[in-house]
Amino acid sequence: MTPLIEVEHLTMRFGGLTAVDDVSFTAFPGQITAIIGPNGAGKTTVFNCITGFYRPTEGRLTLRGGDREYLLERMVGFRIAARARVARTFQNIRLFAGMTVLENLLVAQHNALMRASGYTLLGVLGIGAYGRAERGAVERARAWLERVKLIGQADRPAGELPYGSQRRLEIARAMCTGPALLCLDEPAAGLNPPESAELNELLISIRDQDRVGILLIEHDMSVVMSISDRVVVLDYGRKIADGTPAEVRANPAVIRAYLGDEEAPEAAHG
């Protein structure tokens, strides 16, 4: 199987601090790849490099979408989302709080709608196929609202939704961009056990029905171990393990990173 994204020798330095140090891994389409590690291990930095918010100091990020290859480290942030079709969510939710739930999902389909509206010119004059394109976009949004169980809230401002619903809406918004790779930064943070179980089902359905590759940063081990196909473990910016959940769970280096070393307790952190 050809990998969806290949991360090779990724290094990110901020001044004297090396946040990510020579990390390489691959993720495959239709699989959930979890990135775990203690706080400050560099997980979100890896995400920010992949989604173009940081320009990596070293390394190569190759994304294969369709029959094309994109070198993500050379692309401007918004083009990674627009062309290479990488979507993401944020650790601290970033919805358009004042806009309604439905509008959030339409903004996610901006580029397709922009083309349909003749880059605004035809749209202002009311000619062209914009009306039809917008109806299609609304239908797509409606389908996603049903999947994340927010269909009854469509016309409420997104900022008024409860926390768990905002998390689900952010995933729906990312999926409305029609991504090849979905990067989720701690989607289960702050969810209660039933909500967390619902999230698992949603992610599995995205993987199996939509055949989208998922990169997942998560602290909640019940989520990680039950739904991931592969797990990459980072510690102090380095990769210390990579494999199936069972392999990673048995890996002594991982246990040391999470629980600390008995001989050297000062190395423990969390």
């Binding site: 989604t51 173009g52 918010f53 942030g77 918004f78 083009r79 990674i80 989302a81 627009a82 062309r83 979507a87 993401r88 944020f90 970033r94 919805l95 358009f96 709080a97 004042g98 806009m99 903004v107 996610a108 901006h110 580029n111 918004r173 990312a174 961009t177």
Partner: peptide, 14 residues
């Protein structure tokens, strides 16, 4: 959307 959150806009390819 840009008024509400520019970072999120970039992540959506705007």
């Amino acid at each position: 959307a840009l008024r509400e959150d520019e970072v999120a806009c970039q992540a959506l390819g705007i």
